[in-house]
Design a protein around this nucleic acid. Structure first.
Lengths: 151, 151
DNA sequence: AGGATTCTGAGATTAATTTTAAATAAAGAG
DNA sequence: CTCTTTATTTAAAATTAATCTCAGAATCCT
């Protein structure tokens, strides 16, 4: 649990550099994100969780905090076409976004942390002169569990 | 302009197979999509364009039509995190989704039609047992034009 | 024709997100 | 420490993309 505090301090200084503060509400939001970093929470889901720790917080603040964190590149904002954005803390050492496998049978979202696209980014750079800084990659398909059940 | 009609006839038969009709409103919507196939239009933008040709059409119909075309795999639905879905006619011969290069300086969206991910999909299948049927890939970065301007 | 089915527009509705306005809290200057 | 400025908050209102409702049309089948 040590490294969680370290990460929060990290984020605090990133905020400070941007002239922003780590208020108790923001701290609670970030902390909850850290404790649920594989969950792809929506703003409302996150709000419900945060409220358990820090009752003095409104939904609008959660939205604002997420927006700020997104602008600073601290969280990822992903859209699985289910009507709302979902958020994800970016791991500190990870320059790159991770990928997702979205099962169209059971709806489960699985994360892939390997960077599969280094070669592809190289190709994009050479062919189009486009300098890639990040990417969003979602695979749609059928997960191992559902494949097994079908047979 | 010949092939546009061919494409519409194609789509008409796909609709018929699903027990649906190509009404004048749907025809106008599809036609407008065909004429703007590189534009990544939102539903509202498309509605405005369609209205110029076929004044007797409502926004709800455009939404409904897009939903149908999406279900049938005729259009792609993409989300660039700008608050609404954008739509794209899938090219007929193209089994796969195409990719996008989103420039964070000028906002331009460029299409990439090459399928860059065959190897990657193979890897996902082997490592995770996940059977990929489709994917969404967006690269964020700086386009060739903006790179040139900066220097 | 006539009965079933599919579609449509306009407006109402929903749900996610953003904005507003007034109150609060923290930070810096003197 | 006090004044001033600036950032932040809450709760409610506003906005906005998307969907739904429903009564009337168009189309199809026989």
């Amino acid at each position: 649990m040590e490294f969680l505090e370290t990460r929060i301090t990290d984020i605090e200084s990133q905020l400070h550099q941007a002239g922003l503060k780590l208020t108790p509400q923001r701290r609670a939001t970030v902390s909850t994100l850290l404790h649920n970093c594989e969950k792809h929470l929506s703003a409302e889901e996150l709000f419900t969780l945060v409220r358990k720790k820090e009752t003095d917080i409104g939904l609008a603040t959660v939205y604002r905090t997420l927006e700020i964190l997104f602008e600073l590149g601290i969280v990822n904002k992903i859209n699985f076409e289910d009507g709302m954005s979902r958020y994800d803390l970016r791991l500190s050492d990870q320059g790159h976004f991770h990928h997702h496998l979205l099962c169209k049978v059971c709806g489960k979202v699985q994360e892939v942390h390997e960077d599969l696209l280094l070669d592809v980014e190289e190709e994009v750079k050479n062919k189009f002169g486009f300098e890639v800084t990040d990417h969003r990659l979602i695979f749609h398909g059928i997960c191992a569990d559902c494949l097994a059940k079908k047979k």
